[in-house]
Amino acid sequence: MKKIFLLIGLLVAGFALHGQGKEAYTKAMSKALTQMSTVKTIEDRQAVASQFERIAAKVDEEWLPSYYVALNYINMSYMAEGISTKDKYTTKAQEFIDKAIALEPNNAEVVALQGFNYMTQLAADPNSRGQMMSGKAMQQFSMAVRIAPENPRANMLLGQMQLGMAQFFGSPTDQPCAKVKQTIPAFEAEEANVTLEPNWGKAMAEGIIKQCGQ
């Protein structure tokens, strides 16, 4: 009898502890995500990135913390000045993308983020990286869309690259513009039902659509 009690007790304790861990993880993630939605400066971004880094260090079986660390460093690269500083952030982002890929190699979000990081490296020095990096980014975005045809981020990023190409070659921009426009309802649906999963991108999509209007 005692043994049964003991077993039940240990099991309960175990679940409770596990549940506690999960709950703490969710709480920490939600807090960091809330903070992420308010960032303005590069310092704010760094603080949020650090927050996710702390979570990633503790909960190394989840891909989302690493995903968000990388996403924040990518954003910081756009905010930073100078190629070498920009590169410092994309290098850091790549470190965490690698971690996310190791956990979720076939996740469209991760694949699209890898493409986003290539695109960011390209943006730092378009003259010399344009040729090589545009191909690499394009490949990742196409792969992400193949995995998840409805994913709004993958479609938006792919659409943006195609739009850039079309503008460069002076060919019609209707197709890529339509592609980006189509993502808006999906972004809105995500915003209505917030989870820990990525839901960023609507503002960026709207920015691209504005470009299309011109």
Binding site: Q46, S50, R54, I55, A57, K58
Partner: peptide, 8 residues
């Protein structure tokens, strides 16, 4: 280490 507690 191994907690969520920290700051910048």
């Amino acid at each position: 280490k191994d907690t969520f507690d920290g700051v910048n």
